[in-house]
């Protein structure tokens, strides 16, 4: 079968261009310029550009010359019946299904597959990683937003002693889960645990829960629940892997990728942290029961965030701010209070 194409021939190594004609017969390709055959070659030596809808096909020759087919619809038939990408890109049914499949697969891979993968893979990280991560973060925090506690020494010591007793009873390491008290205007009334087990509680939170030692305990147990479940490491693994996935899939589509990264990843991160919060809640509730404390202590702690104890109006204001900060990362507080009140230990 003979194939005939009209188009433009570009001479090797310079920008000269002339109208020309290509005839393909079996394995032989002939190039005609002004009715004369100026090039004859075997098809296997011609590099044929991949067919793309609406783009003229290019035939490049070994000497550096190039022929561009004039009609953007015409294609050089190479005989192989392989499924071409162009056929897929023009397939109406596939395009239509892709409109639904793409969002579904994206959601599945970023919200389900990658978190699973991240949770699975962090188990294999050596302990020294969590140790270093915690130690270096703690150092950085002390240099920046943590200030020495201004609380009375007895109150501080009492909190620490109570914590150590609880750890002993639960068979957890005193050395790993060291509790520190700091003042921090940045964190406000808050508590957090670093990946290596270092636990920090702020002056402001201790004041807020002054007469509720069990509530303090509940919050601290919740925080080390995050450590035991390797939540920080999982967060890092998830955010790195989803950034890579998004960058790879939308790499060349700047505008779209940005929109997706901007809005999507914040929503997703909230979804991650909601799941992790309830895991940490479960850990706290189970261990409160083990200690013989009422699980309602956890509800009490949450409650005090919703209805801060009345103080001077000035303090009230700053408390409110810190509570909003706490809530933004700890969603559905009422749901959690309810869950704690209804808590039945597993055994």
């Amino acid at each position: 079968m003979q194939q005939l194409f009209t188009g433009t021939y570009y001479f090797p190594a310079n920008s000269q261009a002339e109208s020309a004609e290509v005839r393909v017969n079996g394995d032989t390709l002939n190039l005609y310029y002004q009715q004369q055959c100026i090039l004859a070659t075997n098809l296997s030596l011609v590099s044929v550009s991949s067919a793309i809808p609406g783009v003229a096909q290019e035939l490049s020759f070994t000497d550096g010359g190039k022929f561009v087919i004039g009609n953007t619809q015409h294609r050089l038939q190479l005989g192989s019946g392989a499924l071409s990408a162009e056929a897929l890109e023009k397939n109406k049914k596939l395009i239509f299904s892709a409109i639904f499949l793409v969002p579904l697969l994206l959601w599945f891979s970023i919200a389900i597959a990658l978190p699973k993968l991240a949770a699975g893979s962090v188990k294999y990280l050596p302990d020294s990683v969590a140790e270093q991560m915690g130690r270096q973060t703690f150092y950085a925090l002390q240099k920046t937003i943590l200030e020495p506690s201004e609380l009375d020494t007895p109150l501080r010591e009492q909190t620490i002693t109570q914590w150590q007793q609880a750890l002993d009873e639960l068979g957890l390491s005193r050395k790993k889960f060291q509790l520190h008290v700091f003042k921090s205007d940045y964190f406000g009334a808050n508590a957090f645990a670093l990946p290596n087990g270092t636990v920090v509680i702020t002056d402001q939170l201790l004041i807020l829960l002054k007469d509720k030692p069990n509530a303090v305990l509940a919050i601290l147990l919740h925080e080390i629940g995050h450590v035991e479940h390797q939540h920080s490491l999982r967060m890092v693994a998830q955010s790195v892997s989803s950034s890579v996935a998004i960058a790879v899939i939308f790499g060349d589509l700047e505008g779209f990728g940005e929109v997706l990264i901007g809005t999507g990843s914040t929503l997703l991160q909230n979804a991650f942290s909601r799941e992790m919060e309830s895991e940490a809640d479960q850990f706290a509730l189970n261990n409160l029961v083990k200690l013989g404390k009422p699980p309602q202590a956890f509800a009490e702690a949450m409650q005090s965030f919703v209805q801060p104890i009345d103080g001077s109006s000035e303090e009230h204001d700053t408390d409110n701010k810190s509570i909003f900060r706490y809530l933004s990362t700890h969603p559905d507080i009422n749901e959690r209070i309810h869950a704690a009140e209804q808590f039945q230990p597993a055994n």
Partner: peptide, 10 residues
Amino acid sequence: GIWIVNILLS
């Protein structure tokens, strides 16, 4: 068509 099919294949 090119865009959505390429994302799907990716």
